[in-house]
């Protein structure tokens, strides 16, 4: 085994085998520094002691906007702030999905408003609503926007996103020029009859997102968590049919090749970095994916920031 320090490496070779330039065989092209075939072959014999530390530090340096996160008892506002700091996440858009009554929903959104006030540099507000409460839902959107919330999220499974009950919700988001993000599912039982659904039957599958996005191409609709625990290949194959849809990269699943397939089918411009409380996998899956430096920056920060810019809620 040969250490990098005694291998006589120059800068080009360092980049080609470091976390900045080559993560295994899959990262060629990063920093426009494509290693030659000979260099790639040499990498197998070149050991970088503590190489992971350089990659962690590199990961922390990318500005990041988390498009899907939560504040709740297992991860309160202070913990979100601490966890974001540990991984170099600039800001996190947080919600509390759920609430059986209008009052409960409003109280949950108030907790988010409080989190925005207690951690103004870190936490962005996502407004949760239930379309079944028609007028109250629209009123709550207006109230949350007035309090500085930047989008709707994480909308859940009261009704599917292509249900007509969502039409006025989408139209209100278009009016406010804010994005909306909804829990997307592709678990086996939710798309293939005969298997036990692990999400409620009104959960939205990719086809539902495609239908609403094609009905409202001017809306900024985000399908939640490609890594939320389902068949991500399904998401990639179907979501490509609506060119104005976005997909967030969050979820506990960080399968090898998942982000690469999403880039291949949707394009890097439609992917938004997110964690859904899975901080290390949230960052790690983007660092590991076979991305150009430009695309990595887009996914980590620029794409979501451009959506927030429409209403003037973007980060500086």
């Amino acid at each position: 085994m040969k250490n990098l320090s005694d291998a006589g490496f120059n800068r080009r070779k360092f980049l080609s085998t470091s976390g900045l330039g080559l993560l295994g065989a899959s990262m060629s092209g990063v920093l426009c520094n494509v290693p030659s075939k000979a260099e790639a072959e040499q990498a197998i014999h070149t050991f970088r002691k503590d190489g992971w530390k350089a990659i962690l530090e590199s990961a922390k340096k990318y500005p990041k906007l988390d498009a899907h996160n939560h504040v709740w008892p297992g991860s309160n506002a202070a913990q979100v702030d601490e966890s974001c700091e540990a991984l170099g996440i600039t800001k996190a858009a947080c919600s509390i999905p759920g609430g059986k009554t209008v009052a409960e929903i409003r109280a949950n959104n108030d907790i988010i408003i409080q989190a925005m006030k207690s951690h103004p540099k870190r936490i962005l507000g996502q407004c949760y609503i239930n379309p079944l409460f028609k007028k109250e839902a629209l009123d709550e959107i207006d109230r949350c926007v007035d309090h500085g919330m930047v989008m709707l999220g994480e909308l859940y499974d009261a009704v599917k996103i292509n249900d007509p009950l969502y039409y006025p919700i989408v139209e209100r988001c278009i009016k406010h020029q804010i994005p909306m993000m909804l829990h997307g599912v592709t678990t086996l039982g939710n798309w293939r009859p005969g298997y036990l659904p692990t999400n409620p039957p009104n959960s939205s599958v990719p086809e539902d997102f495609v239908e609403i996005a094609n009905r409202y191409p001017e809306a900024m609709i985000i399908c939640g968590h490609i890594g939320g625990g389902g068949n991500w290949e399904y998401m990639c194959r179907i979501l490509k049919k609506a060119p104005t849809l976005f997909l967030d990269t969050s979820g506990s699943v960080s399968d090898e090749g998942m982000i690469d397939m999403a880039v291949k089918y949707l394009g890097a411009d439609r992917l938004l970095f997110a964690t859904d409380m899975n901080y290390e996998t949230g960052v790690g899956k983007i660092m590991w994916a076979d991305l150009s430096e430009e695309d990595r920056k887009k996914i980590f920060f620029d794409n979501f920031n451009n959506l927030l810019r429409k209403a003037g809620n973007h980060a500086a």
């Binding site: 992971w52 530390k53 990659i55 990961a59 991984l87 960052v283 790690g284 899956k285 660092m287 994916a289």
Partner: peptide, 13 residues
């Protein structure tokens, strides 16, 4: 099975 970066970030932080 999973990306190779995340396990290091987990224990690293």
């Amino acid at each position: 099975f999973v990306d190779y970066s995340s396990p290091f970030l987990r224990l690293g932080v």
